[in-house]
Each structure stands twice: as structure tokens, then as C-alpha cells.
Design a protein around this nucleic acid. Structure first.
Length: 523
DNA sequence: AATGCGCGCAACCGCCTGCGG
DNA sequence: TCCGCAGGCGGTTGCGCGCAT
């Protein structure tokens, strides 16, 4: 048997091709001819009894021609009949695969465009290894092509220690994973909310697929980025239109700007001390730097977003939750109070970049507890673990309330007010007026002139309510030795000259911070 | 020039699903 | 309801090519 197959695997000679063509040409006449005579009939019986050895391996041009001719005459489908009708020594599966992957018209050949690559990443983040569904969003591309591309690319990036997804896609994943839509039943997330907005709704197939994957009607649909790409009637606004995904900016680029204020792995060392106050910045140790501001203890309940090396790269769609469009969700979360404020805001596009920074901001380690502060090390919350506490407050508390809109969460996290009362456990004050938040955030985080960290600290102490850096100020009856009222802001967003060479990719140097130049943004 | 290695790609394999008898 | 078949899908394999040594 093996000997019978092996010759077929060899590249077909011209004689072989002739044979295939001849066989195909006479294939449909075979049955009639077989009844011509007794001897021929016996031969035919022997032929029927003998198992047909189907050919494997690469297709020849002659075989292709036979298959194309057959499809032209009979259309697609009924692939098992191809072998019977044409005499082509290929199984139906092989014929179907050959046709769909190589022979059918309108196939797009060549490497993927940057837009397609980004779309694949985003689709994979949404769908997991649903190659066929992904292919349906990429006209002219086959599932096999996408699968091959993704697997090789993933392998390469994992080997290089780079994240599989672009940062903004990672962000969508990280936040979407934390959305507990099951607890969220606001009618504001109905599909009608998306009508007329920038968000394109899912097509019916995806909607059905999403439903079967665990999405409910109350959940916001995934963004139909593919639809935008396929439409072509207007500029595609992809999430990664931010500088993160610029060709010159590899996806895995650390958020270098933070190195001015915080010490991160792979970033140039900076002073681990903050301008003032008990909230000091500690180096993020590798085991704590899980990539998304998670405490190590969160690993159990929050699966990693990026596949770890050696692990299967698949992110089953059932594990993912779609992200709500920030602008739409922002309005929805406030019951329409905001109206178009968010999406119409001139700086709305830069919120994506803000969120990148927020991730790292949450990585801040709390100061060493003077007494019992920080006694709870696991669980990502409760005690003095600032990062874990923030995580719990933001992701477990805010997200369900605010319909999982990470933009809102991001904004909240900016203005979370931490207090350390006498028992050393932080209390949190959350600002939930989105409209006010937005009005506060934009001017606060995009200053015309970016202060230096030290200067920012000074300014912060002068304006404690919504300072532009990490600051400390005491309350009237507070014991300073045990706690402090800390307003966490985003010093990373106050810009300022850095000097790190890594900033060159998407530097915010300069007073204008180039925010206006950031395109794309929020879907 | 020979060899090894990695990568991209095409094709196959096994499983699952839908459908009709 | 069961069974067989066809088609679809995702995972895996193997080949050919280019490049580095």
C-alpha cells in the first residue's frame, strides 16, 4: 500500500499529467464501455472490487484543470462525485480543499496587508481559532491561509518574547475578560444603542456564533472591524491606528514613557522614589508583572491574555467577552447623560493611548506597610496591596456597574482616591459622574505644558483634588503615621521630556504632546 | 559547494455537525 | 431515533525554498 502511494507523491511528470487528463476525459464514459463485453465486464468487476488508490500530495496543473472544468459544469458541492464523474484520483475532501484554497475565483494571493494583519489579530482576539469565521471577514483569504499566518507569526513572536496581540488588542482582551456581563442587564446595551454610532454591528452569522459561544443578547456585540475593512466606503478606523501599531513600532514595545516615573522591567532604571508621600513606586518584579497589572494572586481567576510560551495559543471564543465600544458604552453607562460628549470630544481618540498607560499605572506597588498595611498578599484586593486593591475595585466593582466599558474604568482609575485610615486598609472613593470625569480628565491629563515629576508633585500638593501626579495630603482627623489620603492620577500622562530612546516611536515630547496627531482611537 | 536550519505553504487527518433516509 | 454520508473545520505534518554557516 505504501508503495502504491509513494509514487503518487512524487512530482507528476508530463506523462502522468497526460494520463490524468485522459482518465478524466473518459471517466464519465467508463460505465457504458464497461458493459461492452464479457471480458471487459470481468475487468470492470475486478476494477470495482479493487480499492481505488486515491492520489495524495501536490496537485498537478492537469488535475487542477479537471477540477475547474468539473466545477464549471456542475458547480460546487458534491465533492465526492468529482472522483466518480471525472476519474480524478482525488478524494472529495481533497477536491474541496483544492478548490476553496487555490482554484476558486477572487482569491487574493500574496502577503497580508498591515490592515489585514491587524484585523486578523483583532478577530483572533474576539473569536479564537475560528479560522473559517475569520476568513469570512477577509475577502479573498482562506481559513488555511489565515491559520498558517497566525501560527507562524505567533510562534515567532512568542520566541522573541513579544506579546501575541498588539497592545490595544491586548487591552481589549484584558478588559473584556474582566467584564462580567452576566451581572449586567442594562437595557442601554441593547443593539439599538449602537445604531448610528461608529460601531458596526455584527452580522447575523457572527451574532449567532457569538450567541452560541456564550454571548447573550444583553451583551454588547463585538466590534465588526472586518465589516469596516470590507466595506471600503469609508476610512477604516482600526483600534491600532495609534502609534502602537505603526510598522516602525513593534507591538511588544514597552510603554517606555512610564519609565520616567516608574521602574519597570526592561525599562531604563529611574529613581524608585516618587516625589512625595507614602505611595512609593517599587520595581515591578517579574512574577508580579503579569502583563496586565495583575497581582500574582489573580492568575487563578483571570486566565492569561497572552498565551504563555509552550502553551496552546488558542483563546477560545467562549472565554472571551466582547468589548463594548467605548464611546457608545460611555454614553450608555451614564444613561445618555453624556450624550455625544465622549465621542465628540477632540481628545477622544487619545483615550486608547491613555488606557495603555493605565495598565502600567496599576502596576504600582504599594509602599511597605508600616504596620499591618499590606498584610494580604493574595487575592488581588482587600489589604494594602495597592495594585491588587485597585484591580479589585476597578475590575470587580466598577466593571459590572459601568457595563464593562474600559474607557470609563480607565477614567475612574485615574481619579480613584485612595485613603489609608488608621487600620492601614485603603478605602476608595470613586468618581462615577462620567461627564464630570471626562471634563476633568482631558484637561488634567493633556496639559499644555507638561511639568516635570518633581514639579508635578508640587502642583499636586497645591491642587489635591485632581492633581496631575501622585500626591499626598492629609485629612483633618487623620493620623499621618498610619495613613494618607492619596489621589492617584496619571503622572505618566502629564507628558514631559523623557530622553529615553524608546520614546522615539511615539514620543509625547513637547508641550502639545502630539495628542492631536493620534488617529484612529476608539473604534 | 555542502550542510543545516527556519520558514512558509500546501495538503492531509481526524473530529464534528447537519441532513436525509 | 438511529445511521450513514457529505461537508466543514481545526490541528498537524511534510515538502520546498531561501538563507546562514
Amino acid at each position: 500500500m505504501e508503495e502504491m502511494i509513494k509514487p503518487a507523491l512524487a512530482p507528476a511528470s508530463s506523462e502522468e499529467e497526460k494520463e490524468v487528463v485522459a482518465t478524466a476525459a473518459t471517466g464519465e464514459r467508463r460505465h457504458e464501455e464497461a458493459t461492452a463485453g464479457r471480458e471487459e465486464q470481468e475487468e470492470e468487476e475486478e476494477e470495482e472490487e479493487a480499492p481505488v488508490v486515491l492520489k495524495k500530495g501536490p496537485w498537478t496543473t492537469a488535475e487542477d484543470a479537471v477540477l475547474v472544468q468539473h466545477v464549471r459544469q456542475h458547480g460546487e458541492g458534491n465533492w465526492n462525485a468529482v472522483q466518480r464523474m471525472t476519474g480524478l484520483l482525488r478524494c472529495g475532501k481533497s477536491c474541496r480543499l483544492r478548490w476553496t484554497n487555490h482554484l476558486r475565483p477572487n482569491l487574493k494571493k500574496g502577503s497580508f496587508s498591515p490592515d489585514e494583519e491587524l484585523l486578523i489579530a483583532q478577530l483572533h482576539a474576539q473569536l479564537g481559532n475560528k479560522w473559517a469565521r475569520m476568513a469570512s471577514h477577509l475577502p479573498g483569504r482562506t481559513d488555511n491561509e489565515i491559520k498558517n499566518y497566525w501560527n507562524t507569526r505567533t510562534k515567532r513572536r512568542q520566541r522573541a518574547g513579544l506579546p501575541v496581540y498588539p497592545p490595544d488588542v491586548q487591552l481589549h482582551l484584558a478588559f473584556a475578560k474582566r467584564c462580567r456581563y452576566d451581572d449586567f442587564s442594562s437595557p442601554l446595551s441593547s443593539p439599538q444603542q449602537s445604531a448610528g454610532s461608529n460601531v458596526l454591528s455584527m452580522d447575523a452569522a457572527d451574532a449567532a456564533g457569538a450567541a452560541s459561544s456564550g454571548y447573550t443578547s444583553a451583551r454588547p456585540p463585538p466590534l465588526d472591524l472586518a465589516g469596516q475593512l470590507a466595506m471600503g466606503s469609508r476610512p477604516v478606523q482600526l483600534l491600532a491606528a495609534t502609534p502602537f501599531s505603526a510598522p516602525s513600532s513593534p507591538w511588544g514595545k514597552p510603554f517606555a514613557r512610564n519609565a520616567q516615573f516608574f521602574q519597570f522591567p526592561h525599562s531604563s532604571p529611574v529613581s524608585p522614589t516618587t516625589p512625595t508621600g507614602p505611595v512609593q513606586v517599587h520595581p515591578v518584579t517579574p512574577e508580579l508583572s503579569l502583563g496586565y497589572g495583575l497581582h500574582a494572586g489573580d492568575r487563578a481567576r483571570l486566565p492569561p491574555v497572552s498565551p504563555s510560551p509552550g502553551a496552546r495559543a488558542e483563546l477560545p471564543s467562549s472565554q472571551l467577552r466582547p468589548s463594548m465600544a467605548p464611546t457608545t458604552a460611555a454614553a450608555a453607562a451614564t444613561g445618555g447623560l453624556v450624550g455625544g460628549a465622549l465621542q465628540d470630544h477632540p481628545n477622544a481618540a487619545s483615550l486608547e493611548a491613555m488606557l495603555q498607560e493605565l495598565h502600567d499605572a496599576i502596576k504600582i506597588e504599594p509602599p511597605a506597610p508600616p504596620e499591618n498595611r499590606g498584610t494580604e498578599e493574595e487575592g488581588g484586593g482587600g489589604g494594602g496591596n495597592l495594585r491588587g486593591f485597585l484591580h479589585e475595585q476597578i475590575f470587580d466593582k466598577l466593571m459590572p456597574i459601568k457595563s464593562g466599558d474600559f474607557c470609563i474604568v480607565g477614567l475612574h482609575s485615574v481619579l480613584i482616591s485612595l485613603q489609608f485610615p488608621g487600620d492601614g486598609k485603603p478605602e476608595v472613593e470613586l468618581k462615577d459622574d462620567i461627564e464630570t470625569l471626562f471634563d476633568l480628565i482631558i484637561p488634567a491629563t493633556f496639559p499644555a505644558a507638561a511639568p516635570e515629576p518633581a514639579a508635578a508633585a508640587t502642583a499636586a500638593s497645591a491642587a489635591p483634588n485632581h492633581s496631575s501626579s501622585v500626591s499626598q495630603h492629609s485629612s483633618d482627623d487623620q493620623d499621618h503615621s498610619n495613613g494618607a489620603d492619596v489621589v492617584l492620577d496619571l503622572p505618566i500622562l502629564t507628558g514631559g521630556g523623557g530622553g529615553s530612546s524608546e520614546q522615539d516611536d511615539w514620543s509625547l515630547d513637547g508641550a502639545a504632546c502630539q495628542w492631536d496627531n493620534i488617529s484612529g482611537g476608539i473604534c
